[in-house]
Design a protein around this nucleic acid. Structure first.
Length: 627
DNA sequence: TTAGGGTTAG
């Protein structure tokens, strides 16, 4: 219970007052409804208090608004008092008030009280709205099975099932293991003829997205003859949350063609995809659209813009937007700290964290993940350990597996494998795939086959289809010239039907994306590119004889990042930075190649891979942790 | 009683 609620509760204690005929209820009720419509719920409750004090008696039109205000402000104590007022007023037999009471108790997580109200309904229980309120309440409290039981009773009683019933049920299927229930409910919607109801169809679409079935969601989306803004948003954010950024941009284009105007929710999904793809030109277009539509003050969008610019390599712009924000939330700080972190500016990231604390913002678990990863990218091992300890000691935050995986990564990269292993053993929470994966990555860097085998065994128990770990171990065996090991991993991959996602690199040039795969010969400048690459490779080999046995599982083709780098060299003037995006991680071989080329041709390269930015110039890379 | 949302390593 919060302080505000205590003050309300105390002030409500002696009410309701004596009923006077001189003070009619209707004008009070109209004002109450108006406030609720404007979502000014605390003001509505204040008005309710004044109403009682002035001797006006609440009626069946008063309680639903007051109860809804308590539900949305999470004031259970006040809600219980209102329940008492309802009983005193003799309105308890009104099914709408019963419904409001059930909903209020459920929103305040007092499901038992809600159930009591429901069970006491007696002669009034044959109302669909009461069943709907309880079903929705169970769903709200993640009790999908209880919802289904009530739904069953409702069917037995022969009550009318309407779209709200289905919305309340379907919205409870939010996890992949709910897919079966979700599909049955889809069948029910069809049976009751409710699947053509737009809100139900939108809810089903969201259910498929949340259960990880994006393809099914898309099929439903395509089948829908009527679509509204919510339909488009559900599909766009569904793709965005599942990392299908390319699909998001495609769908956004279709949406514009269908003349539906985007709202802030749409633009958020689009911006997060621009951030993932490094599509700065589309991101800037969205920024102009935000201004044009008057969404400039939406802090969700501003935070997304900071993230987008930082991830597209434009830290200056990201910082300018951050600095211009009047109110910076912990999320704004996380976005900018993370931005500096992925660019390898660990010290700036830590200074920003310090500034955040100074400005009175309480850090949360997420900001610590970005701080620890910033330390990791910048090779600031001891600082990272310090912040990890501070998390619990100074701020009372329990580290989760995501913090441990950062720390294992940090220690592992510094070669402190034993400490990393001991840290995992000391964990209070169960280590997840990322924790063992970080250890496996560290073993690869420091060529520790024995520990790698242990980490691999654990990690594939937890994430059997994550191809990256198989490649990592296979490459480690290959480094150690353990061909039997390489073969064993290959057989495992074949048995489990795992195929590596093809690596690709791309460059945005003159408004067009130039995409390259490994060994690609489809680009119009292929001849020139390969000729120049040959020349560069001979120059590089003169300075540094590089190893060629990386990524053996991919084959021996020319890596995509090399093609993209050379494309940039051929098409841009000296003095201009060449920016390349890669979907996976840059391999060691290419990392070295680009480093040396930057010295030979005296150019600066910026490469963004799956985890961070690499800034190459004069034979050096900005990241301190690349092996 | 009712569907869509920002920050997170590898």
């Amino acid at each position: 219970m919060n302080l505000q609620q205590v003050s309300y509760a105390n002030e409500l204690e002696p009410e309701p007052g004596p009923r006077t005929l001189a003070n009619p209820t209707t004008p009070w009720n109209s004002r109450l409804r108006e406030l609720a419509k404007q979502r000014q719920f605390s003001q509505a409750l204040t008005l309710y208090r004044h109403m009682l004090r002035s001797g006006c008696f609440p009626n069946t039109f008063t309680f639903p608004v007051a109860l809804k205000s308590c539900a949305l402000l999470l004031f259970p104590l006040l809600g219980s008092q209102l329940h008492a007022h309802v009983l005193r007023s003799g309105c308890e037999s009104d099914p709408y008030i019963r419904t409001s009471l059930i909903s209020m108790y459920c929103k305040c997580s007092l499901v038992h009280n809600a159930r009591k109200v429901f069970d006491e309904i007696g002669q009034w229980r044959n109302f669909t709205i009461c069943y709907n309120a309880l079903i929705s309440g169970y769903t709200f409290n993640s009790k999908i099975f209880d919802s289904l039981v009530i739904f069953g009773r409702m069917r037995e009683a022969g009550l009318l099932v309407n779209s709200v019933t289905m919305l309340s049920l379907v919205s409870g299927c939010t996890l992949p293991n709910h897919l079966g229930i979700g599909m049955c409910l889809h069948g029910c919607c069809f049976k009751f003829g409710l699947d053509s109801d737009l809100s139900v169809a939108n809810c089903l679409l969201t259910m498929y997205v949340k259960c990880g079935e994006v393809q099914r969601a898309r099929e439903l989306f395509d089948e829908m003859t009527e679509k509204n803004l919510i339909t488009w948003n559900a599909m766009i954010s569904g793709y965005a949350q599942n990392g299908l950024a390319g699909h998001v941009l495609e769908l956004f284009r279709d949406m514009k063609l269908s003349k539906i105007r985007p709202d802030p929710v749409t633009l958020l999904g689009v911006l997060s995809s621009c951030a993932n793809l490094g599509a700065q030109s589309i991101g800037s277009e969205v920024e102009r659209q935000i201004e044009y539509c008057g969404f400039g003050s939406n802090s969700f969008l501003t935070n997304a813009l900071i993230n987008m610019y930082a991830r597209c390599g434009n830290l200056v712009k990201a910082r300018a937007i951050f600095d211009s924000m009047a109110e910076k939330s912990v999320i704004s700080w996380t976005a900018i700290i993370g931005g500096y972190g992925i660019h390898g500016h660990g010290e700036i990231a830590l200074n920003l964290f310090y500034e955040m604390i100074k400005s009175g913002i309480r850090p949360d678990e997420t900001v610590f993940v970005t701080v620890l990863s910033a330390c990791s990218h910048a090779g600031l091992t001891d600082e990272g350990l310090k912040y990890f300890d501070a998390m619990e000691m100074n701020y009372g935050l329990q580290p989760g597996p995501e913090h441990y995986s950062c720390l294992v990564d940090l220690l592992g990269r510094a070669g402190r494998l034993k400490e990393a292993m001991n840290l995992i053993k000391s964990m209070k929470v169960k280590p997840d795939g990322a924790v063992w994966g970080a250890l496996l990555g560290a073993c690869k860097i420091h060529k520790n086959v024995e520990l790698a085998e242990l980490a691999f065994e654990r990690v594939i128990e937890l994430e059997p289809s994550n191809i990256g770990y198989y490649v990592l171990l296979s490459n480690l065996y290959s480094d150690a010239e353990n061909l039997e090991g390489v073969l064993r991993v290959r057989v495992m991959m074949k048995e489990r039907k795992l195929k590596k996602e093809p690596g690709c690199s791309y460059v945005e040039y003159k408004g067009k994306v130039h995409l390259f795969f490994s060994g690609d010969r489809n680009h119009s400048q292929t001849e020139e590119i390969y000729r120049m690459l040959d020349e560069l490779e001979s120059l590089v080999k003169e300075i540094h004889p590089s190893s060629e046995n990386e990524e053996i599982l991919v084959g021996t083709g020319v890596h995509s990042e090399k093609l993209a780098i050379v494309f940039g060299l051929l098409n841009t003037k000296p003095g201009i930075d060449i920016t390349v995006m890669k979907n996976l991680r840059v391999c060691v071989d290419c990392h070295l190649f680009i480093k040396l080329v930057s010295k030979i041709v005296n150019r600066r390269f910026v490469v963004r891979d799956a985890t961070r930015f690499h800034h190459f110039s004069d034979g050096v890379c900005s990241c301190k942790d690349y092996w």
